[in-house]
Design a binder for these strands. Sequence first.
DNA 1: GATGAATGAGGGTTCATTCAT
DNA 2: TATGAATGAACCCTCATTCAT
Lengths: 214, 214, 214, 214
Amino acid sequence: MTGAALNPRKSPRQLRARATVETILEAAARILETAGPEGFNTNAVAAKAGVSVGSLYQYFPAKQALVAELSRRNADAVLQGLAEVAAATDGQPLEVRLRAFVRFAIAQQCARPRLSRVLDRLEEGMALDTDERTTAPDILAVLAPVLAAEASRADPGAVMAIARDCLALVRALIDAALDRGPVDREALEKNTLGALLGYLGASLRPPEQAAARV
Amino acid sequence: MTGAALNPRKSPRQLRARATVETILEAAARILETAGPEGFNTNAVAAKAGVSVGSLYQYFPAKQALVAELSRRNADAVLQGLAEVAAATDGQPLEVRLRAFVRFAIAQQCARPRLSRVLDRLEEGMALDTDERTTAPDILAVLAPVLAAEASRADPGAVMAIARDCLALVRALIDAALDRGPVDREALEKNTLGALLGYLGASLRPPEQAAARV
Amino acid sequence: MTGAALNPRKSPRQLRARATVETILEAAARILETAGPEGFNTNAVAAKAGVSVGSLYQYFPAKQALVAELSRRNADAVLQGLAEVAAATDGQPLEVRLRAFVRFAIAQQCARPRLSRVLDRLEEGMALDTDERTTAPDILAVLAPVLAAEASRADPGAVMAIARDCLALVRALIDAALDRGPVDREALEKNTLGALLGYLGASLRPPEQAAARV
Amino acid sequence: MTGAALNPRKSPRQLRARATVETILEAAARILETAGPEGFNTNAVAAKAGVSVGSLYQYFPAKQALVAELSRRNADAVLQGLAEVAAATDGQPLEVRLRAFVRFAIAQQCARPRLSRVLDRLEEGMALDTDERTTAPDILAVLAPVLAAEASRADPGAVMAIARDCLALVRALIDAALDRGPVDREALEKNTLGALLGYLGASLRPPEQAAARV
DNA sequence: GATGAATGAGGGTTCATTCAT
DNA sequence: TATGAATGAACCCTCATTCAT
């Protein structure tokens, strides 16, 4: 319903304007990183951006639109990365591909760890509010075929659900690691991959077969 | 810093007072479920509880204290449940114990799914704000020994980290399932257990060994 | 649609609260009188009332609710007055009754001339916005029977329309007089009554008959 | 005080400029019609006119200047029309002339009913703000002699007041009719003329004589 | 002249918290 | 102790106006 209000208000024509938009978004990201969702208010963002509130509202019709745009960009980056990884590992065994995915996800989240975490939280909130899936379906569209190769009998809906679970699982483990401080990427990758394979082994296999032993 | 402010103001001795506290907490839970964190404010809680704001502040020194207490109770319930499960499955193989844990976790989250989700989110927020671990360490204290049996060489800190990851992983998968609508508990249990075992297989084994194949 | 937002938020239970409500309304009236609709903002009203904005919003859910309540009270006073006049002149000829009505209307408008004018304007605006008749139909209900006595063949809808026109006509002439400065009530009454009788003579008579000569 | 600011900034010599001014004014009129005074802002007007805000401010020094110019043009049209009507009915009896006036006023208001209403409201507001008579005195100058013929003993000031009342009365009845929906011009003309004659009968006659019977 | 980006004071509304009764 | 009236800082957003390009 209020979905329209989340889209940017206008595409800046002039270069100056485009720069302003970028400045504002970066300021928004920084505020989210340093002050969290609680300290995230339009005045603070505008101030941090060295811009007036009015300018902010020229390009973003509402505070939420800032978060939405940040999420969108994040999702786009992930999507692009996943697509590249998928292409680069085409034809290789599932485990190799998944490892590449996981490595990419870790790199992605670690780039701006706090921002990723906060965006995750806020996306959840927006999802609860708008009943709108914010995790771009495109991401799942990339993931699904990779998994589907293994899941011969699985129906598309189930594959989607599995892809979603994979994302959630990976995010959760990376976030948990980030919470603990500096990340040992090697170990994180190994463990996350283990969980992923364990999950897939259980969910893609016929029900009667038990999961693999430890 | 504001840690003290999160504790209930006083343990009411009188019965009526105790009842009031319960009423307020239940009202808070219901508001969180129906209106989410955005609609969660002290006036609404007091109104829903059929109590004046003044009374609310008599027992809870700040709004956050409501969330804190709700979380604490949730954690306590989990702790108690886990402890019971641990006792009931004492001596049995890890997979059996973990399966029991997972089943319990699912039952727990499904009891009031939306409340669980929202509390998870808010706890994260509080953690970001206060740098205080809100996931009761006690929970981990129950989980750790179960895992530690397998992890002979692991140092205590590592076991703690693993326990934390397990919790995060399980929560993430359950939440993801809840997001999709009605939950098939059988399947969820199987998949979650798979992920858990996969994760543990990877994290408890020496680094040079690869994770199990799918 | 937003009609609900115009009603007072809650009826004050305590005496102090009732007093606050009155103070706020009187302040609102005074602001409208001295600063006009342009200077009419909630902060100013609260300040003039010696009260915080918060208090204002406890009793009035929106700025418009202040205007609505002022209008309602004004309409109620008019209604009451008209009813009394109608009762007092029961059985007397139309002209006498109308004269009494006009005299009452003049007294009413002159009591707080500027407030009356501004409220008229604002009601118009609200009417345009909400498509809701703000001139209490009750007022017309009092006026209609008086006129209907003369209008044997007129259908009820037509009588309503006539009553409405009468109100508009009277208001317009009084407002115009108020605009010019101090009012000669005698003359105003005479002229307004003349217009009223002229209007009624034309509108209540069959179409083929011409209006009376000057 | 701000009177100077209400005049157009410059009379554009070039044709393109003149066209721009017209476009802007028409856009302003349309916004007033469709969005009312609340939705009337310079950005909207400029956008509707397909012009930049900067251009708008090139020709109109302030938002109010738009309204002022619109009012002025409206007044001019009325003036011109009245003058023509006065000329065309020269020498005829008062009732005939007044009927022609009324018919013209109705046609005028019905042409763009909503615009007329809104302008009336805004003029009132400006009058309240600036203490400046916005109803062009010229209009009254046309009306006055027509009436003065009848009012032998009336002093000029009184005639002015009467003319003003006439305008107010006619406007009020036409507006009231427009409020009710589609207008029956025949009936409206008849009734308005009746009111007008009734008013004049009362105000032009010596005080001791009573108004005409219905 | 024209453009549209930028400004920022202004104003509506909320809600955590206090305190007199 | 309970109540609920009162507080006011905070925050979202608008829009008249300016000015660099």
